[in-house]
Design a protein around this nucleic acid. Structure first.
Length: 271
DNA sequence: ATCGCCTCCTGCGCGC
DNA sequence: TGCGCGCAGGAGGCGA
């Protein structure tokens, strides 16, 4: 399940292969995604050079001379550079063929992903213009989080997973960050103190950074299938550890659902 | 404005 | 071994 670290790793991995290269042609074998690939998409990108790529939240943006398009991996998508003649696997839905004999191949079993043309002003697009700060940006501070949380009643876990507040804290990382900062996931966001916000912000940043640093390994594994992050999984403190001893105090980890999402916490360490 | 639920889709793991 | 079922998950959209 690509979370922000996997998306960042993917972006870094494909960058040198695609920037400055022309899209010889795009081959769309399946266009039914979260949003269908628009009819004019092929005509818009065929023959154009990719000037740069960037990541915003979990979106990967591709800059062409006359506009941008973006790809979201959804929860089962992967984007890899392969030799053009590489035999197609199940769910290899879109190919961006490059003049180098390679191609950028988008595979997405569950089709929660998307490939969207954005036009000349990508940040004005409805999907991007309301996003909260990147977790590594200076705007994402304890001060900011605390202020945004004023009077909010939602569980703090839902709150930090809300892309309008901060992007990139997916379910796994939200669970982990709350454990690290000693905050119970069910606490109303508005009841989390300033001091706790400081710990939480630091924890979100730390857990995402650590995961990105393991990116190579994680990527290798997550690209192979749609399984959980490989190496990083060994470092998980609470996620998917129901009834297993807390790594800090030995208390058994509890599981519950918050907003339809699996939630794990240590009833002793997290207040 | 805020909140909580629903939805998209496929693969997997479980129980029988 | 095979079958069917339920679950998982990112995130927009909607109704209350």
């Amino acid at each position: 399940m690509p979370e922000l670290p996997e998306v960042e790793t993917t972006k870094r991995g494909i960058e040198s292969h695609v920037v400055g290269k022309k899209i010889a042609q795009v081959i769309i074998r399946e266009s039914r995604f979260r949003w269908p690939i628009s009819r004019g998409f092929k005509q818009k990108v065929d023959g154009h050079i990719i000037r740069s790529i960037a990541r915003r939240a979990k979106y990967i943006l591709f800059e062409l001379d006359h506009g941008y398009f973006m790809i979201h991996l959804g929860m089962s998508g992967s984007l890899r550079i392969v030799e053009s003649k590489t035999i197609l696997k199940k769910h290899d839905h879109v190919d961006f063929q490059l003049p180098t004999g390679k191609c950028l191949r988008f595979n997405d079993p569950r089709r929660f992903g998307s490939v969207l043309w954005l036009g000349k002003h990508p940040m004005k697009h409805a999907l991007l213009n309301k996003l909260g700060p990147e977790p590594f940006a200076k705007e994402f501070s304890a001060e900011y989080l605390f202020l945004r949380a004023r009077k909010r009643k939602v569980a703090i876990k839902n709150f930090i997973m809300d892309n309008h507040i901060v992007v990139g804290a997916g379910n796994i990382y939200a669970n982990e960050a709350l454990f690290i900062s000693g905050i119970r996931p069910t606490r109303p966001a508005g009841k989390v103190t300033k001091t706790e916000c400081e710990r939480l912000v630091a924890a979100i940043i730390a857990v995402l950074k650590a995961s990105i640093e393991m990116g190579g390994t994680t990527l290798k594994d997550f690209v192979g299938g749609d399984g959980k992050p490989g190496y990083f999984q060994q470092t998980l403190r609470v996620y998917d550890r129901e009834q297993q001893p807390c790594k800090k105090c030995g208390t058994l980890i509890k599981a519950l659902r918050i907003g339809q999402r699996s939630t794990y916490y240590c009833p002793n360490c997290q207040k």
